[in-house]
Design a binder for these strands. Sequence first.
DNA 1: GTCTATAGAAAGATAGAC
DNA 2: GTCTATCTTTCTATAGAC
Lengths: 199, 199
Amino acid sequence: MARPRGSTSEITGQRLRAAALRLFARHGFAAVSMRQIAAGAGVQAGTLYLHFADKEDLLFDLLRSHMEDLIAAWDGQARPEGPLDRLREFVGFHLGRNRDHPDAVFLSYMELRNLGPANFARIESLRRDYEDRLSAILAEGEAAGVFACPDVKLATMAIIAMLNGVNTWYREGGRLTRERVGEIYWGMVRQAVAASGRA
Amino acid sequence: MARPRGSTSEITGQRLRAAALRLFARHGFAAVSMRQIAAGAGVQAGTLYLHFADKEDLLFDLLRSHMEDLIAAWDGQARPEGPLDRLREFVGFHLGRNRDHPDAVFLSYMELRNLGPANFARIESLRRDYEDRLSAILAEGEAAGVFACPDVKLATMAIIAMLNGVNTWYREGGRLTRERVGEIYWGMVRQAVAASGRA
DNA sequence: GTCTATAGAAAGATAGAC
DNA sequence: GTCTATCTTTCTATAGAC
């Protein structure tokens, strides 16, 4: 993040990150050896310890940068006015990020248990920060009478889980395009929190 | 499954299954050693190979029996008439199973990649069988004009992902009871597929 | 059916040459 | 900054005693 750009070290570091991300997502953190990661980046095993203190530090680096990039990307983009359009924007944004970073998304939900307590807490905190963006939209819509969630936090968790599910089954070239899937999910999300229709 | 009941072998086998389930869910398949599993069941490592051919066979046994029990439990219970009540029943059933078998549910989504192609295909097939039960309810409701899913398969995946998400954040003794969470999720599911309100 | 003991391979991490 | 070589530990799986 704060290393000199373009240096040999930085290039190797990024290649190691990329190799580790791919391998961890494919086989699981515990199943991947430091030797495999090094080989994936075209270096020897010992070199890894020039860039990362140990295996967990490498995993933490991947998860932290993923969450920080995610939050920065959302905060950095223009937001439409009004809770409904803003929610639509969030759904599209989240699905787009999941599409573009499937390995990191998978890791950030599946391999948290391999972090020590301190690192675990930091990632969880970042995740909460991100989820709070969605909660704020829902609360705003609730106050405006556009949404009617019986519980904003639960609606937040439900929407995120629902959207994340797409990555587990969607395959390029299948029955539906990404765009169509996005439209259909947006429809379900909108109805799930809509003010009309609540019994 | 077809072993003599109550025999010493069967008891040890069940203890090994229970220990493996707990350890795999807690630390991940690759991170758990055969020695740990044996110790968790109070036997030595060599004994494991009397009950399972190898580590993958043990995982497959856990996943297969979980999925088969799940389907049998749903098929074996009385079903209310009408798509809306049937959907409500499914939501409650699914949340209840997830509550009672969190480790097996977690494993069946996270450790499939550790199965060989043949075993993987068998578990995937069982999962599809289960999901088809939900799809049938949605299709029935669609035909009756009670539901309006733009796509039954996507609604199936969305509902299951949403419900499964509860296990990742719900903690006993928290802000909401299981019953209240079930009510709120049922409300969101119902609205998400409701015939009214579709634009 | 379970034990002890171990073979053989592979893991994480480090030291020192270049 | 990267390499080779290696220490130490741990792994899966098996052989043979009881």
